[in-house]
């Protein structure tokens, strides 16, 4: 039994098809890289796995750890062991970073009467390189830099002890030092916990830390090519996504050409 099995998934958002017969299987402990031009459906896939409202499954199924997810709410799904680092998490005023980390770990909000010194979020913040005294009482995302935002997402992922982590561009908008810390942290965690990983990225820099199993190229709402991560990256860096467009489902290529600008300089 695969850890994550997505079969023939088709999804619509406001009547527009965003996933089109998508297939993917990830086994325990495997690291998969997902690439593709903007608008190819990468984020839609993540939102659909999580069960976000507005992502209407028209066909196909998602199974995780033997359970079919389609009719479950977001929180029921993540409790099965799915954890996500969002590309741009929202700001939530008044909700403290330490508390969201605790919630991710299934703990209650921090209560100084029971726990004079916060003991759960503090070491996790330290681990991801956010100084606990400065960050634990901060409102989620408010005034965070790009790198701080990514690290705070990682702290939440580590808190939840997942079977699979889904990382949506954990390396975008971060400087080279942060990238290294994030890469090392993730790599160690994946290895140490035999955790599976699906990572969406436009860059190769983070990959050496994660030792990926397979890379996939998405176009027009489905995977059009899978193979060795380094080979695929090298090819895309040379030639862009143009040749993958030919592999899109019928009619999709024309739509993409009409509606989307695919620019090689973006990745």
């Amino acid at each position: 039994m695969s850890l994550l099995a997505i079969e023939n998934l088709s999804v619509e958002v406001e009547g527009k098809k965003v996933l089109n017969g998508f297939n993917l299987t990830i086994e325990k402990g495997e690291v998969h890289v997902l690439m593709g031009p903007n608008g190819s459906g990468k984020s839609s896939l993540i939102m659909t796995i999580l069960g976000y409202p507005g992502y209407k499954v028209c066909a196909g199924a998602i199974t995780f750890d033997g359970r079919e997810l389609n009719s479950m709410s977001i929180n029921e799904r993540v409790k099965l062991g799915i954890s996500i680092a969002f590309q741009t998490p929202p700001e939530i005023r008044g909700v403290k970073l330490r508390d969201i980390i605790r919630i991710s770990g299934g703990k209650s909000l921090w209560n100084p009467q029971i726990e004079p010194e916060e003991e759960f979020a503090t070491p996790l913040l330290k681990k991801v390189g956010l100084e606990p005294t400065q960050f634990r009482d901060r409102d989620i995302g408010v005034g965070f830099s790009g790198g701080e935002r990514k690290r705070s997402e990682l702290a939440q992922i580590f808190a939840s002890n997942p079977k699979i982590m889904i990382l949506d561009e954990p390396d975008s908008g971060v400087d080279i030092d942060s990238l290294k810390t994030i890469g090392i942290d993730l790599g160690e965690y994946i290895k140490g916990h035999d955790c599976a990983c699906l990572i969406v990225t436009h860059y190769r820099h983070i990959l050496p830390y994660l030792n990926p199993t397979l890379a996939h190229v998405m176009c027009g709402g489905k995977i059009v090519k899978s193979g060795s991560p380094m080979e695929i990256f090298t090819k895309i860096e040379e030639k862009g996504y143009c040749e993958y467009l030919e592999l899109c489902p019928p009619g999709i290529k024309e739509e993409i050409e009409k509606g989307l600008v695919i620019n090689n300089t973006e990745f």
Binding site: S73, N75, V78, F86, P90, I92, I103, Q156
Partner: peptide, 15 residues
């Protein structure tokens, strides 16, 4: 905001 609600739900809270 729905984005805030969904974000907290993705950390394990119900609606």
């Amino acid at each position: 905001e729905e984005a805030q609600l969904c974000y907290l739900m993705s950390r394990g809270l119900n609606e």
